[in-house]
Amino acid sequence: MDSVPILKIGDVLLVSIQTDLQDEAVMALQESLAERISSTGASGVIIDISVLDVVDSFAGRMLATVAAISRVLDAETVVVGMRPAVAITLVEMGLSLDGIKTALDLERGMRLLSGDGALA
């Protein structure tokens, strides 16, 4: 089973989702991300989903769960690069991802975390 790489940049963890995630991969990601946050003491998590062009309700809930876990561990989550089709699907499914910050691309996401919302 291929796992999703978690990269550390400064005190931000970058999760770049490259393929459509299977359910086990999602569970593994949640687990390893929680571990990395507490071991590195990261203050922010960026989830890049710019390659994702299909989401189902499970993937949508995964984003919300990851964000909730990060928040408990005192790290802020930013979802970046969401495609229009994905955004429309999530809204149609009624998932508004409350409490998650979003940005158009990775660069803006980084700025959002480092500037602590100064540019938001």
Binding site: R83, A87, I88, E92, S96, L97, T102, L104
Partner: peptide
């Protein structure tokens, strides 16, 4: 409302 929510999800 849906348009605004979708834009928000994308970071706008």
């Amino acid at each position: 409302l849906k348009t605004v929510m979708a834009a928000r999800l994308m970071g706008a």
